[in-house]
Every structure is written in C-alpha cells, then in structure tokens.
Simulated scan of single mutants.
Amino acid sequence: MFSDKKQKSIMDTSSQQNIIAHGTRIVGDIESKGPFRIDGSVEGNVRTEGKVVIGKAGNVTGTLEGVNVDVEGKFSGKLLIKGTLSLKSSAHIEGEVQVSKLAVEPGATFNATCSMKGAVKALNNGEKTSQKNDKGTERTA
C-alpha cells in the first residue's frame, strides 16, 4: 500500500511548480507538463501545459507555448498561448503573439504582431462567413 502512494506522487508532477531562479541561465529547449516561474534567463523554446510566470527579473528569448502566461519581465520571440496572456505594467514583449485572450496593464510595452484565435468566430456568433480577397479567391472565416 505504501508503494502505491509513492508511485502515484511520482507520476503526478503537473501541480509542482518548476522555478528558474534569478541568476540562472538556460540555453536550450524545455518541455514540461507542470507550471513554470522564470526569474532567470532562458534562450530557447519552452513548452508546457501549465501556467508560466515570467518574473520582473525574468528574460525569455525564443518560442513559448503554453495555456496561460503572466509576464512581468522581458520576452522576445514567439508566444503561442491557448488561454490568457497577462502583461503586467513592467512587461516588455517583442515578436509575434497568438493568443485567445489578452490583458494588458498600463505601462506594459507590447511591440508585437498579435492574432487572437477565436476572435473572428466570437464576433460572428460562431457563423462562418465568406469573403473574397483582392485576387477574387473566396476565404472562409
């Protein structure tokens, strides 16, 4: 019975937060199922199913794929967010952003191209619409 509990806790790591501390520099790709707090520097791609928090001292350069992300520090690259991207007043973002929801506090720097998935569908109440572009080709939104 004791071994079953131990085995269960080893397998369920999705609730444990990974921390990249201030002064730590990681070069390379990171993949995890759990949440992340980044107060150091990451140069590479980060992919997680958990929440990511980039602290005030945090700096990420690369591609970040996640569900929900809070940014207080710096990010440069490509953000692919399935849920909400929250930019605090100290945030500095540069690059390309694909997100479902975006929250920006006054004072945040947001120098990025941004596309919001689901925005067209929400505006049209879920109805598909057809439009012709300048070449006469029909496009469905």
Rank of each mutant, 00 (worst) to 15 (best):
V67T: 15
L64V: 03
L85A: 00
E105Q: 09
D70T: 12
G55W: 02
E65W: 07
G77C: 11
A122P: 04
L87F: 03
A119H: 08
E65A: 10
K82H: 08
L79R: 00
A57E: 10
V69G: 01
G73F: 05
S76K: 14
V104A: 01
E65M: 11
I93D: 07
T63D: 11
S89G: 07
H92G: 10
F110M: 07
A91H: 05
L85C: 00
G77P: 13
Q98E: 06
G107R: 13
E65Q: 13
T113P: 06
L64T: 01
N45C: 09
G73Q: 09
A119T: 02
S89A: 15
E43M: 10
E49I: 13
K82E: 04
V99W: 02
L87R: 05
F75M: 10
V67M: 13
V120H: 10
V53S: 02
I81T: 00
T84K: 04
K121R: 14
E96T: 15
L80Q: 06
I54K: 08
G77N: 13
E94L: 12
D70A: 11
A119S: 09
G83W: 01
G58W: 02
A91V: 05
T61N: 13
V120I: 15
V67F: 11
S115A: 15
S86T: 05
G107P: 08
L102Y: 00
L85E: 00
F75E: 06
L79V: 01
N68C: 06
A103V: 11
V42K: 07
A91M: 03
N59K: 12
A57T: 09
F110E: 01
G55E: 04
S89D: 15
V99N: 02
L64F: 02
N124I: 03
L80H: 03
S100F: 00
A112L: 13
S90E: 05
A91T: 04
F110Q: 01
S115Y: 14
L102K: 01
N59R: 12
F75G: 07
I54Y: 07
S90F: 03
G62F: 12
K121C: 03
V120G: 09
K56L: 13
G118N: 11
G50C: 11
V67N: 15
N124P: 05
G44C: 10
T61A: 12
V67H: 14
K82M: 05
A112E: 13
F110T: 03
